[in-house]
Design a protein around this nucleic acid. Structure first.
Lengths: 129, 129
DNA sequence: TGTTGACATGGAGTACACTCCAGCATTTAT
DNA sequence: ATAAATGCTGGAGTGTACTCCATGTCAACA
């Protein structure tokens, strides 16, 4: 099954402009028909789905670009790709702890404002934050 | 204790440019001496510390701007400020779940590549992502 | 007295990740 | 046959949150 850029855009959820942008960055490449129009295959869809999913994890476009290049270079680059994934995983674990901290902070602030706890900063209401 | 912008920058960790930028946005205001030079007080430092901390939770500059305005308007705006905090808390909980999902996804991908599990997508190694 | 050095302002530039547009070609529906 | 829709390219514009720069003022020190 082949898809025009419009069809593929609807299928994968990326805008037409984003697809062209990713192609310029060599992240999601397309094929061309006899009129120079892009078309995409089901394999392209699988790859696009992965790109979208890894992007959702917060991987930067630059790293996704690197990952895409490595993938094009073949199976010999699997260790390099794994490194990118490990880096991403590390970053996610860091974020996870930061989020926990942030939740604690905002909850404390809310408790301060709702008066369930003693004030956290000072007693001068005119200077409260 | 009063601080020049350079001293305050070192004390709070925001660059001089960022302090001036935040002042333009009316987030962290300064006082001026007889030569029109900014100076900051210890109360300003408390407020700046809060701004920096809430920013770390991912609150947008726009919402921090709103929060700052509400604070200037007095204690009557506490419910509005609480609303901003509750919104932020909600956003953090959403992020927390997304991060968990993302960690699961990346871990699975790593397991796929390290061959500890059956392939997750297809068996054609030439098409792997 | 002269030269640092910190500070002032307004405005331009940066990075990221798109998003939009002008101008043109081709395709599809009536 | 023609109008609307879809596609093409290169390049400009957007939003967020700063960051940098040119130019100028002012005070302190050698």
């Amino acid at each position: 099954m082949n898809y025009s850029i419009g069809e593929f855009s609807k299928k994968c959820g990326l805008s037409i402009d984003t697809l062209r942008y990713y192609e310029k960055l060599e992240i999601i490449r397309s094929n061309r028909d006899e009129n120079n129009r892009r078309y995409y295959t089901d394999d392209d869809f699988k790859w696009a789905s992965f790109v979208i999913r890894i992007k959702k994890t917060g991987m930067s476009i630059k790293n996704i670009q690197t990952y895409s290049r490595l993938r094009r270079e073949g199976t010999g680059t699997v260790p390099d790709r794994l490194q990118l994934l490990f880096d991403q995983l590390k970053s996610l674990h860091v974020q996870q702890h930061e989020i926990d901290d942030n939740i604690e902070f905002v909850e404390n602030k809310i408790q301060y404002y709702t008066g369930l706890n003693a004030p956290l900063e000072n007693d001068d209401k005119s200077k409260e934050v």
